[in-house]
Every structure is written in structure tokens, then in C-alpha cells.
Amino acid sequence: MKQLLFNPFIKIAGAKALLLGLVLIIIGSVFASLFNARFDGLIDLHFYKGVNVFQALFDQIIGLIVVAFVFFITALILGSKPRLVDLVGTFAYSRLPYVFAPLLNITGVFLTFSNALQSIDPANPVLPLSSSQLVSFVFLTILSIVLVVWLVTLYFKAWKTCSNLKGNKLVLSFIAGLLIAEILTVYLTRNFTI
């Protein structure tokens, strides 16, 4: 079970992972449109009013294409020869934690908090939220951090399995690739909307 959640790529890769990943992306997009979430970055999740399902799907597909492309180029530079289908498949399956991420806004607490922040009077800076709303906001924020850590762990395992790099080369190439992919995805998803 632990392996299935944190290092599934020992057993799943290629077309199988891609198919499962695409199903996860579609489910995540439906949840995103239902609970007002946008995946506007490779590891970003923000809550806006009225997100349509195609926008959520577009965001995730852009993220997938960018991350696979960036790491494929990185692999070629470093002399590793992964199959493109393995990279796309494992990175698609890595979106598993973000299927659940939009559910964090099931009560609308993130939008409420965002509205509350915007309505603060600078002369009287008091958050117009009840203590129960604050507690649930803090709890759900911690949960969202757990999901981000899980997502990055899966991305790392996907890269490790596909590249077969080791040591510093593996870690540094992962950090560099993730940063480049994140910047590109943020730029593309925030400048091209449906």
C-alpha cells in the first residue's frame, strides 16, 4: 500500500500509467470545477469563483506537457535515455494527490477566507471570521501542504524511475527541472485561459 501511494512507478509506468493518469486528471478537473479550484502552476492550486471544467483540464494538460518536455530535455542533456511514454505516464499518474486537493474547498472556506482578507479595513485590521472558520482554514491549509509534499514526492520518484540517475545528479536535476517546469506552467496557465 505504501509503495502504491509513494512509489508506484516500480510497478506502473508507460501507457498504463498514462491511462490511469489521464483518468485522474479528468476526475481532478471535475472536482476543480465543482469546488472552484484552478491548477495554475505545476504544484499550484488556487481558488477562484466560477472555474469551468475545461479550464481545469487545460491547466492540468499544460502542466503535464510542460513537465514531461522539461524532464525529457533534462534527461537527454544528462545522457539518460528514458522513453517519452514513461515520462508522460509517470508524471500524469503523479497528479494523484491533486485529485483530492479541490475537495479542500468543499465548504468554501478558502474563498470565504480570501473574501474576508479583501474586506479588511486597514484602519481596523480584524478578520471577520469566526474561530471555527479560522480553525478549519488552518487545518485545511496543513492538509494542502501534505498534498503538495505527496505530489512532489511522486514527481521525484517518477523522475528517479525514468532517468535512473543517482546521487547529487538526480537531486539537482530534479530541483532545476521542477523549477523550470513550474515557471513555464505558471506563465502559460495564467496567460492562456479558456
Binding site: 512507478f9 516500480i10 510497478k11 506502473i12 509506468a13 508507460g14 500509467a17 528514458p82 522513453r83 514513461d86 509517470t90 524511475t161 525514468c162 535512473n164
Partner: peptide, 14 residues
């Protein structure tokens, strides 16, 4: 073996 293609590829490369 019940492993993914890249896992076996990595075992072979090692």
C-alpha cells in the same frame, strides 16, 4: 517479474 518497464531497464543498466 511484475515490475514496470523502466524499473527493469534500470536494473539492467545497473
Amino acid at each position: 517479474l511484475g515490475y514496470s518497464y523502466p524499473t527493469v531497464r534500470n536494473m539492467l543498466d545497473d
